[in-house]
C-alpha cells in the first residue's frame, strides 16, 4: 500500500475514532438525563461528625496561631496573657469554593457545634491548604471573621499532653488528639507553610449570615449552634482544617461535637 493511501486511511481512522468518542459522550449525557446528578449522593460531599474531649487539645500557644508571622487567636478583651490550648480538626469534607463555578463546585461548609461544660472562651478559626501555600481567616481589619463561644463551667486543673508552639510558619502540625510517639511510625501530619511573598488572609471566612461575603466576628454564649466556613475566591482548596482554641483548662466533663457538611450554593 502506498503512503498516500495509508495517510487517507489514517485520517479516516481519526474521523472514526472521533465519531466513537462522540457516541460515548452522547450515551453518557443521555444516561445523566435519566439519572440527574441531583439525585446522586457524591461520596465527596459526605458529612463528617466528630467528638472531642479535653485530651484532644494537643498544642499550647501563647496568644498566637499559624501564619507567616504569628497571628492573634483573639483580640481585645479576649486577648489574655495566658496560654491557649489548640487542636487542628480535619474537616474531611468537600472544601468551600467561591470561585468560578465553571472551575469548581461552589459551596460552603456548614458546621454544627455542640459544646458541653466549656470553661472560658473557645475560639474557632479556619485554615486551608491551596496548592503549596496555606490560608486562614483574619480577625483584625476589613473582612474580619471568627467564632468565639464563652462558657461558664469551672476551669479544670489539667489538660492532656501538649506540644508548645514556638514557630508559626513552616511547621508540621498533627491533627486533633494525635501525638508524636517515638516508638510508633510517624503519624499523619500537615505541613503548614504560608508563602511570605503572598497574602492568605482574604479568602477564607467564618459566618452565620451567608449574605456577608467577608464573614463576621461572632461572639456568643450559645453552647450549641452552627456557623459556615466560606471562601470568597482564590484557588481551590485541597485540605480544610478547623482550628479550635480554648483559653482555660477544661473540666473532665468537657466535650465538643462537630457535624460538618459541604453544601452546594447552586442548583
Amino acid at each position: 500500500m502506498d503512503l498516500s493511501k495509508r495517510a487517507a486511511l489514517g485520517f479516516a481512522l481519526v474521523v472514526l475514532l472521533l465519531g466513537g468518542f462522540f457516541a460515548v459522550q452522547i450515551t453518557a449525557e443521555e444516561w445523566l438525563t435519566l439519572n440527574p446528578p441531583d439525585r446522586m449522593t457524591p461520596v465527596i460531599d459526605s458529612r463528617e461528625t466528630v467528638s472531642f474531649g479535653k485530651s484532644d487539645f494537643n498544642y499550647l500557644s501563647w496568644k498566637y496561631r499559624p501564619y507567616k508571622e504569628p497571628l492573634l487567636i483573639a483580640t481585645g478583651g479576649d486577648q489574655k496573657d495566658s496560654p491557649w490550648y489548640l487542636m487542628f480538626v480535619n474537616t474531611n469534607v468537600t472544601p468551600p469554593y467561591g470561585g468560578n463555578p465553571k472551575l469548581g463546585r461552589t459551596g460552603y461548609v456548614r458546621v454544627d457545634y455542640d459544646l458541653h461544660d466549656l470553661a472560658g472562651t473557645a475560639a474557632f478559626h479556619v485554615l486551608a491548604l491551596t496548592g503549596s501555600s496555606w490560608r486562614t481567616n483574619r480577625i483584625e481589619g476589613f473582612g474580619s471573621s471568627a467564632l468565639f463561644v464563652r462558657g461558664d463551667a469551672e476551669p479544670g486543673t489539667s489538660m492532656g499532653p501538649t506540644t508548645e508552639m514556638t514557630d508559626y510558619n513552616n511547621i508540621q502540625v498533627l491533627p486533633a488528639g494525635v501525638r508524636e510517639n517515638p516508638e510508633d511510625t510517624a503519624p499523619y501530619s500537615y505541613y503548614i507553610h504560608f508563602d511570605p511573598a503572598s497574602g492568605g488572609l482574604n479568602s477564607l471566612h467564618i459566618t452565620r449570615d451567608l449574605s456577608r461575603v467577608k464573614g463576621e466576628i461572632i461572639d456568643t454564649t450559645d453552647q450549641s449552634g452552627s456557623f459556615n466556613l466560606t471562601s470568597s475566591g482564590g484557588p481551590a482548596i485541597d485540605a480544610l482544617l478547623l482550628l479550635v482554641a480554648v483559653d482555660e483548662m477544661q473540666p473532665d466533663t468537657f466535650s465538643l461535637s462537630l457535624d460538618m457538611q459541604f453544601i452546594r450554593s447552586e442548583g
Binding site: F21, F22, V24, Q25, T27, A28, E29, W31, L32
Partner: peptide, 12 residues
C-alpha cells in the same frame, strides 16, 4: 465511568 465518558467527545 459517566464522569470520564461525558467529556470524551469534546476532549477528543
Amino acid at each position: 465511568l459517566v464522569v470520564v465518558a461525558v467529556g470524551a467527545g469534546i476532549s477528543s
